[in-house]
């Protein structure tokens, strides 16, 4: 079974996990990975074709009127001030 450092995964995923749940996850994550690892048995490659979907670019114009959604977006923010999103200070002196 794949050796997985679940604590590290949780950190990479930016998710705080309680000690109790970590015990469950340390059992479940390797079990799920053991299940999906059966794809290793699948052989052969199929040439990647351009199917019905391809990269579509829109015209480089204004998709909507400027400031059309500003108020709605400001209202959705956890912390806003004077029309700006307020975020935590991340640069310190020391």
């Amino acid at each position: 079974m794949t050796d997985v450092d679940v604590t590290k995964l949780a950190k990479l995923s930016r998710i705080a996990v309680s000690d109790e749940e970590m015990k469950d996850l340390e059992k479940e994550v390797p079990e799920i990975l053991a299940f999906v690892e059966q794809i290793a048995e699948a052989g052969g490659e199929v040439a990647k074709e351009t199917g019905e979907h391809y990269n579509i670019l829109r015209e480089d114009t204004e998709p909507h009127e400027s400031s059309a959604y500003t108020n709605e977006m400001l209202e959705a923010m956890p912390d806003a001030k004077n029309g700006y999103l307020k975020v935590r200070k991340i640069i310190s002196q020391d």
Partner: peptide
Amino acid sequence: MQTRGKGFGKESRRRILIGTF
């Protein structure tokens, strides 16, 4: 860490970890 730890339910957390791996 706190927002995502408290905001996501158990299955979401599980799938995010699998996806990250």
